[in-house]
Design a binder for these strands. Structure first.
Length: 970
RNA sequence: GCCCGGAUGGCGGAAUUGGUAGACGCGCUGGUCUCAAACACCAGUGUCUUCAUUGGCAUGCCGGUUCGACUCCGGCUCCGGGUACCA
C-alpha cells in the first residue's frame, strides 16, 4: 500500500483545526518557550517557496520544545498596513482594507496547508482597529514622556511640568532639542499655555519636527533611510529628493546608549549586532569652541565655531577649519573678496545629487571664506574653508582640519597648499599620506609636548573644561526617527491641533477613551489638491467637530514595533496585553526572520520595548533573546533556445527549439548556415526549408515557466498548451533546459509555488526538503531537483510499517541491541543538532536512521514509536498518522515526550582505531574500548602493516588518543 | 575604503572542542523487476596511476604552528551581505 499523503495530510490538518490542538494557555506548571517569526506583509502575489523557510524552522523548534515539555507560544499574524495595497487602491479605487483582507485569506490558506502549529486564535493584524488602538495608545505614552538622563529612563511629562514650575529647567538633565534655552521657574510660570506646550514639545519622546526628509514624489511618501537604495526608493525605484517638512519624530537617540549596551545581552549574530552598532555610530571625543577672529556682521556672525573631534590630542596640528556649505552662518563668515567664489561653490554643491556626491568621493573640492578662527590652545589664526566632505547633519557641521593625522584633511591640505604639521614623533611618511597613529610622544604641541596619547587627552580635556571652551562629548550617527507618512493606509495619529493666543496650532492628544481613532472614509486615495495627505479628503473629520486632526499616518514600522506582546493576549480590550500574560511569556526566546531588518524593524522594536520597560509595563530590557536570520532563497530560472528564421522557412509560424549545445555553439560563432540547414533537415525533413533561399537565423534564449520543467527536463506537452506551434529538437528523447540563478520573481517565470509542491509531494516532503537544502542562515538558490530524495524518505519510513502488499507488519517484540543502537544514535544527534539549530543535519540523521532500520528489517513497535516522535517536528502529518496506527490517541503526538537518550545502547566492546603513520591512515586495528594507551601502542607496533611502514625502525613517537586515533611517527 | 560572512566532488552540502575529508541527498553509470516505461530495489561513483592490488594528489592561493590542520596563526585572491567623506 503506497502512502497516500494527500488524504492523510488533509485529514490531520482538519483534525488540528477542529480540535484546536495548538491552542496555548498560560500554564505555570511548565516552563514557557516563545518562538516567533517576523510576521509577513500580505502581498498580492502570495507565498513563494522562499517565504516559508524560516516559518518551517520556527515550527520545528516549536514542536520540538513541546516534546521537551515546554509550554510553547507560537503565533502568526500580519503586518497589514503598507504601500502596495494603497497603490492598488489608487489605481482601482478598491479600499485597501478589502485588498488586504483577500491577501490575508490567501496567506492563511497557504500557511495552513504547510501544517504549521500556530495558535491561530492569537492571530494579529496591524490594520485591525482593535490592534492599532494600542499602537496609538503607545504613541500617546511616548508623547506623554520625556527621557531623564539622571534616572536613565523615560519619565512622565506631568512630573517634568512640576519640576519646571518649581525650579525651571536648569536642574533638569533631560534629552531635548539642541536649541532649548535655559529658563527659571519664574519664567516658566509666567509663560502662556501655548508657550509652555511649545517648550514641552522639545522634551516629549515624540514630537512634530521641521526636518529635512527623503521625499519620494513617485510614491508621494517620505521614506526612511533604510527604504532608500542607491538614491532611489527601494520599492518602485523612484527618485528621492530632500525636502523640508513638518513630520512627527521619535526621540530614539535618547535610547542610543541602551540600544548599544543591550546588544551585549542578546544572542544575535555578530554581523547583526555590528550593523546596529554602526548604525547608531557612537563616537567618544570632545567638543571644542574656536573663537571667530573675523567678525563681519556684529549680529549674525557667530562668536565661535564649535567642532566635534575624536582626537583632541591632535589640536596643535590644526591648520584649517572646514564647515559644511549648507550652514546658515556661511554668508556671515564670508569676506567681500571671497563672496563670489563662495556663492558659486555653495550653488554648485546644492546642484549636485546624492549620486554625484557618492561617485566623486575621492575628489577634493572646497573654497576659502576669507575669515579666520583662533585655535584656543596656541592662539594661531586658522583659515575657515567650506568643503562638501563635511556633512551639515553630523555633529556641528564643522571640522577642525588636522592634515597630519586624517587622510581627508591631508588631501584637502595638499590641494590648497596648507601646512601639514607633524604632532607625534612616531608619525611616518607624511609627505605621502596622513598617519593616524596614537603611538609616540607629542611634538610641536605646546602643553602636551613629550606626553603620550593617554596623558595628553586627559590634560587637554581638563584645559577645555577649565576655560569653558569645550568638554568631553559622545556623538551619535543615529538620527531621531521620522514617524509620519503622507499616506492613507496606516494608523491615524491620535492628535489634533489647537491654536492659542494667536500662535501656531500645537498638537494635543485625544482622550484615551476615544481610542481607536479609526481611518475615515475618503473618496480617492491621493493627496488633496492643496498637497495635503489623503486624510485631508475626509469630510468633516475633525476632533469634536472643530479641531484639525493630524493628517499624516504612522509609518510602516509602528505596528510591528510591539506585536509580540499582542500575541500574548490578542483579544484584550482593556490593555495592550494583560500584565499576567506579559509576566508569564516575558520575551521572545527565539525570533526568526530576515537580516534586512537590522537597522529598521529590529532597532525600532528594541527602542519601543525599552520605553515600555521604563513605564514598568514589560519586564525585559530586550524583546528577542535569540535571533536567527534565515538566508534569502533565490530563484533558478530555466531557459529554452528558440531559432528565429528571418527568411526561407516554411511554415512561417513554426518555432523550432534546439538543445542548449546548439545555442552555445551559436554563441561562439561555431554554428554555420550549413550546420543549421542539416540540423533542421534531419528533424523536419528536407522540404522544411526553401532550398533556393539562404536562411538567415538567430538563436535566442527564452525564459520558460519553471512549472513546465521537472529536473531541468521540459514537459513538452505542457509547453505546447501555451505555444502550440513549438517544435523541439530532442536529445535522448527529451529536451533539457538551461538554467541560471536569479532573484525569484514573477517576471523571471521562476517562482516556485508551495501549493504546487504540496500537491505533488506533500507538505511533509516540502518541510523536510526546505530544511535539507542547507544551513538555515545561508543564502541559497532554490532547486526543486533534489526534492525526490525527501519524498523517498517519507515513503521509506512508511514501508517500515507496511509491506508492499499493504500488510501492517509492526510487532510488539523486544528490540535487538543493534536496533536500539540505531535508534539512540538518532535520538542523540537529533537532540544535539536541534539545540544548535542545525536543521539540515537533522534530516540526514533521520534518513540514516530509517535506512538503517530498513536494512535491519526492524518493525518493532518500541523502536518505531520513538522514531515517529523524532520525525514529528519535521513531518508532522505522517507522524500523526503513524502515531495513531501504533495505537496512540489521535492528536497526542505533539505533546508526547521526546525519547530519552540512553548512552548504554551505544557502548561498544571494541573500538576500531585508525592507525595513521606520519599523519596518513594506513590501517585499522580493533582494541577493547577500555584498553590502556600502553597496550594499544604495543598492539599497534606489533601489527604487520605498521611494521611494513616502519621498515624495521623504532618509531620516534606514538600518540594514542583514546577512542579517536593512533598516530605513529617514524 | 571600512565592517561582517563565505570558498570542500558534476550539484546541494557533512565533518560539533585540531584526530579516518566527502556523511546524507541529488545527478550519473551498471544491474534486477517489466512487453516497455514509471516506481522500487541492488552495486558503483573526488581525482590521477594501475588489469587489479597498491600508491600519489586533493577542502580558493602562498607560508607557518603541530605527532596530526577543512578547522589555529600570518599574507593574498575571488564571491556574498552591510555601510559610506561620521571628523
Amino acid at each position: 500500500m503506497e502512502y497516500n499523503y494527500r488524504e492523510v495530510e488533509q485529514k490531520w490538518r482538519q483534525f488540528w483545526e477542529d480540535n484546536k490542538t495548538f491552542k496555548t494557555e498560560i500554564n505555570h506548571s511548565k516552563p514557557k518557550y516563545y518562538v516567533m517569526d517576523m510576521f509577513p506583509y500580505p502581498s498580492g502575489a502570495g507565498l513563494h517557496v522562499g517565504h516559508p523557510l524560516g516559518y518551517i524552522a520556527s515550527d520545528i523548534i516549536a514542536r520540538y520544545k513541546r516534546l521537551k515539555g515546554f509550554n510553547v507560544l507560537h503565533p502568526m499574524g500580519f503586518d497589514s498596513f503598507g504601500l502596495p495595497a494603497e497603490q492598488y487602491a489608487i489605481q482601482t479605487g478598491q479600499h485597501p482594507a478589502i485588498t488586504t483582507e483577500e491577501n490575508i485569506a490567501t496567506y492563511i490558506r497557504q500557511l495552513k496547508q504547510i501544517g504549521f502549529s500556530y495558535d491561530w486564535s492569537r492571530e494579529v493584524r496591524t490594520s485591525d482597529p482593535n490592534y492599532y488602538k494600542w499602537t496609538q495608545w503607545i504613541f500617546m505614552q511616548l508623547f506623554n514622556h520625556y527621557y531623564d538622563k539622571d534616572e536613565n529612563k523615560a519619565l512622565k511629562i506631568s512630573d517634568l511640568i512640576i519640576r519646571f514650575a518649581e525650579s525651571g529647567n536648569k536642574v533638569v538633565n533631560a534629552v531635548c532639542d539642541e536649541d532649548t534655552e535655559i529658563f527659571t521657574a519664574e519664567e516658566w510660570n509666567g509663560m502662556t499655555e501655548h508657550q509652555q506646550q511649545s517648550l514641552l514639545l522639545k522634551y516629549r519622546l515624540t514630537y512634530p519636527d521641521e526636518s529635512v526628509v527623503n521625499w519620494c514624489p513617485g510614491l508621494k511618501a517620505v521614506l526612511a533611510n533604510d527604504e532608500i537604495k542607491d538614491g532611489v526608493s527601494e520599492r518602485g525605484g523612484f527618485p528621492v529628493e530632500q525636502r523640508k517638512m513638518k513630520q512627527w519624530a521619535m526621540r530614539i537617540t535618547a535610547y542610543a546608549d541602551r540600544l548599544i549596551d543591550g546588544l551585549n545581552e542578546v544572542d544575535w549574530s555578530d554581523s547583526m549586532k555590528d550593523q546596529q552598532r554602526n548604525w547608531i555610530g557612537r563616537s567618544t571625543g570632545a567638543s571644542v569652541r574656536f573663537a571667530v577672529d573675523t567678525i563681519l556682521d556684529k549680529v549674525n556672525t557667530p562668536p565661535f565655531i564649535e567642532v566635534f573631534t575624536t582626537r583632541v590630542d591632535t589640536i596643535y596640528g590644526v591648520s584649517f577649519m572646514v564647515i559644511a556649505p549648507e550652514l546658515e552662518s556661511v554668508p556671515f563668515l564670508t569676506t567681500p573678496e571671497q563672496k563670489e567664489a563662495v556663492e558659486e561653490y555653495v550653488k554648485w554643491v546644492a546642484s549636485r545629487t546624492e549620486l554625484d556626491r557618492m561617485s566623486e568621493v575621492k575628489k577634493v573640492s572646497g573654497v576659502f571664506t576669507g575669515s579666520y578662527v583662533i585655535n584656543p590652545f596656541n592662539d594661531e589664526k586658522v583659515p575657515i574653508y567650506l568643503a562638501d566632505y563635511v556633512l551639515a547633519g553630523y555633529g556641528t557641521g564643522a571640522v577642525m582640519g588636522v592634515p597630519s593625522g586624517d587622510q581627508r584633511d591631508w588631501n584637502f591640505a595638499k590641494h590648497f597648499n596648507l601646512p601639514i604639521v607633524p604632532i607625534l614623533d612616531a608619525q611616518k611618511e607624511m609627505d605621502v599620506q596622513a598617519d593616524n597613529t596614537k603611538e609616540g610622544k607629542y611634538i610641536n604641541s605646546g602643553i602636551i609636548n613629550g606626553l603620550d596619547y593617554k596623558e595628553a587627552t586627559k590634560v587637554l580635556t581638563q584645559f577645555l573644561e577649565e576655560k569653558a571652551i569645550g568638554k568631553g562629548k559622545i556623538q551619535y550617527r543615529l538620527r531621531n526617527a521620522v514617524f509620519s507618512r503622507q499616506r492613507y493606509w496606516g494608523e491615524p495619529v491620535p492628535v489634533y491641533f489647537k491654536g492659542g493666543s494667536g500662535g501656531e496650532p500645537l498638537p494635543y492628544l485625544i482622550e484615551e477613551s476615544e481610542l481607536p481613532l479609526t481611518l475615515p472614509v475618503i473618496d480617492k486615495y491621493l493627496p488633496t489638491d492643496t498637497g495635503e495627505p489623503p486624510l485631508g479628503r475626509a469630510e468633516g473629520w475633525k476632533y469634536k467637530g472643530e479641531y484639525e486632526y493630524e493628517l499624516s499616518t504612522m509609518p510602516g514600522w509602528a505596528g510591528s514595533s510591539w506585536y509580540w506582546y499582542r500575541y500574548m493576549d490578542a483579544q484584550n480590550a482593556t490593555e495592550f496585553a494583560s500584565q499576567e500574560s506579559i509576566n508569564y511569556w516575558k520575551a521572545v526566546d527565539l525570533y526568526i526572520g530576515g537580516s534586512e531588518h537590522a537597522t529598521g524593524h529590529l532597532l525600532y522594536s528594541r527602542f519601543w520595548n525599552k520605553f515600555l520597560k521604563d513605564l514598568g509595563l514589560v519586564p525585559e530590557e530586550e524583546f528577542a533573546k535569540k535571533l536567527i536570520n534565515q538566508g534569502m532563497i533565490s530563484g533558478r530560472s530555466n531557459f529554452v533556445y528558440c531559432i528565429i528564421v528571418t527568411n526561407g522557412l516554411k511554415p512561417a509560424n513554426t518555432d523550432i527549439y534546439v538543445p542548449i549545445s546548439y545555442y552555445l555553439k551559436y554563441e561562439n560563432g561555431d554554428l554555420s548556415t550549413q550546420d543549421f540547414q542539416e540540423l533542421i533537415s534531419e528533424t523536419h525533413g528536407t522540404d522544411f526549408l526553401e532550398k533556393s533561399i539562404n536562411p538567415m537565423f538567430k538563436i535566442i534564449r527564452l525564459r520558460v515557466n519553471v512549472d513546465f520543467v521537472d529536473n531541468d527536463i521540459l514537459d513538452i506537452e505542457k509547453y505546447k498548451e501555451h505555444f502550440n506551434e513549438a517544435k523541439f529538437i530532442l536529445e535522448d528523447g527529451k529536451y533539457t533546459c538551461g538554467w541560471e540563478v536569479e532573484k525569484m520573481s514573477k517576471s523571471k517565470y521562476n517562482v516556485v509555488n508551495p501549493d504546487i509542491l504540496v500537491d505533488k509531494v506533500g507538505a511533509d516532503t516540502l518541510r523536510l526538503y526546505e530544511m535539507f537544502l542547507g544551513p538555515l542562515e545561508q543564502a541559497k538558490p532554490w532547486n526543486t531537483n533534489g526534492i525526490d530524495g525527501s519524498f523517498r524518505f517519507i515513503k521509506k519510513a512508511w514501508r517500515l510499517f507496511y509491506d508492499d502488499l499493504g500488510t501492517f507488519k509492526v510487532k510488539d517484540e523486544a528490540p535487538t541491541p543493534a536496533e536500539l543502537k540505531v535508534l539512540h544514535t538518532a535520538i542523540k544527534k537529533v537532540e544535539e543538532d536541534l539545540e544548535r539549530y542545525s536543521f539540515n543535519t537533522v534530516v540526514s540523521t533521520l534518513m540514516i536512521c530509517v535506512n538503517d532500520l530498513g536494512s535491519l528489517k526492524c518493525s518493532k513497535k518500541a523502536i518505531l514509536q520513538d522514531l515517529v516522535i523524532l520525525m514529528s517536528p519535521y513531518t508532522p502529518h505522517i507522524a500523526e498518522e503513524l502515531w495513531t496506527i501504533l495505537g496512540n490517541e489521535a492528536g497526542t503526538i505533539s505533546y508526547a515526550n521526546f525519547p530519552k537518550f540512553n548512552p548504554s545502547y551505544l557502548v561498544e566492546a571494541n573500538f576500531e582505531y585508525p592507525i595513521s603513520i606520519n599523519g596518513k591512515v594506513r590501517a585499522n586495528i580493533s582494541f577493547p574500548t577500555d584498553a590502556l594507551p600502553a597496550d594499544i601502542e604495543a598492539g599497534v607496533l606489533a601489527n604487520e602493516v605498521v611494521q611494513k611502514w616502519l621498515e624495521g625502525k623504532v618509531p620516534k613517537k606514538v600518540i594514542v588518543v583514546l577512542k579517536r586515533i593512533v598516530n605513529v611517527v617514524p
